[in-house]
């Protein structure tokens, strides 16, 4: 059983990552499982409730973040479009519970809006598709390349950089080349995965921070602001505050200012 390294010792400086991202990746490759198997679902998703063992506050924060990443990933994957008002009520409460751990106004605003806007669930799918799916031109395309590239096209350099990052963490999309790697739901799911793995190996925590810095921080907040310009749907607006708030919490912790 690998020991979790202390973050203060193992964290690689921002500067190092910018200049030498390979360094930590090499370490990771040596330690990662080389089997080509699907991720074990039971490891990612909980299916029973139990009393958590006492853990230190840092780790608790990490797990709560992970839960929020997974919620946001699931939202952007389109899997929450068919759930009813009741389910949104329950989910909203749970999100509020996670959010309460972080004393951050935007995140709390997001979770409040989700709870207040459960009536918007009826129109959620239509609004969601108009913004993120189609068939018409997307009003707030959820792809990194759309924000960072100049050509409104994915599978270009921006998408390939994300793909490369996944590969360095030993992952590849199940639907590789059928769906672009830089879709927001994949990036959020990946961040959650790295967090979970970091419970066992702090190299993953370094990857997680690098992924935020190199990718999510580069576009997600702009995306959230665009979403709010384009929709009045309270659920979607709430999610945009929640996501943007989460990014701000991450920035504060990592001491990375938004440019």
């Amino acid at each position: 059983m690998k020991k979790r390294r202390k973050q203060t010792q193992s964290r690689i400086s921002n500067e190092t990552l910018r200049t030498n991202p390979e360094r930590m990746v090499t370490k990771l490759e040596m330690s990662s499982n080389e089997m080509e198997t699907p991720v074990n679902e039971n490891e990612l998703q909980a299916n029973e409730t139990g009393t958590a063992a006492p853990v230190n506050p840092n780790e608790e924060k990490l797990v709560r973040k992970m839960a929020l990443y997974m919620f946001l990933a699931k939202f952007y994957s389109g899997n929450l479009l068919k759930i009813d008002r009741e389910m949104w009520n329950r989910l909203g409460d749970m999100v509020r519970e996670e959010v309460s751990f972080f004393d951050h106004e935007k995140m709390q605003q997001g979770s409040r809006m989700i709870i207040q806007a459960v009536n918007d669930a009826a129109e959620l799918e239509f609004d969601f598709n108009r913004l993120f799916v189609g068939p018409d031109r997307l009003e707030a395309a959820p792809y990194e390349s759309v924000y960072r590239g100049t050509e409104r096209a994915f599978m270009q350099a921006e998408t390939m950089a994300v793909r490369k990052f996944y590969e360095r963490a030993g992952l590849s999309l199940v639907n590789k080349n059928r769906e672009p790697d830089d879709h927001l739901s994949f990036e959020l799911e990946f961040a959650g995965y790295l967090l979970e793995e970091s419970l066992e190996d702090s190299v993953y925590y370094e990857l997680y921070e690098a992924f935020l810095r190199l990718h999510l921080f580069q576009w997600v907040e702009r995306h959230c602001e665009l979403v709010r310009e384009k929709t009045a749907n309270g659920l979607i607006t709430g999610v945009s505050y929640l996501l943007q708030g989460l990014m701000e919490v991450e920035r504060k912790q990592m001491n990375v200012l938004r440019r």
Binding site: E29, S32, N33, E34, M35, E36, T37, P38, V39, E41, L44, Q45, A46, N47, E48, T49, G50, T51, A52, A53, V55, E59, V63, R64, M66, A67, L68, M70, F71, K74, S77, N79, L80, K82, I83, M87, R90, L91, M94, V95, E97, E98, Y166, E167, R168, G170, L171, S172, L173, V174, N175, S185, F186, E189, F190, Y193, E196, L199
Partner: peptide, 27 residues
């Protein structure tokens, strides 16, 4: 086990399936 204590994760598992979008590969 601690992760399993997360209510959100538990609830999400029941919605839209639990399949991961990723698979592990050899670098």
């Amino acid at each position: 086990t601690f992760l399993k204590g997360s209510a959100v994760l538990g609830a999400l598992a029941g919605i839209g399936g639990t399949a991961s979008s990723f698979k592990k590969i050899k670098p």
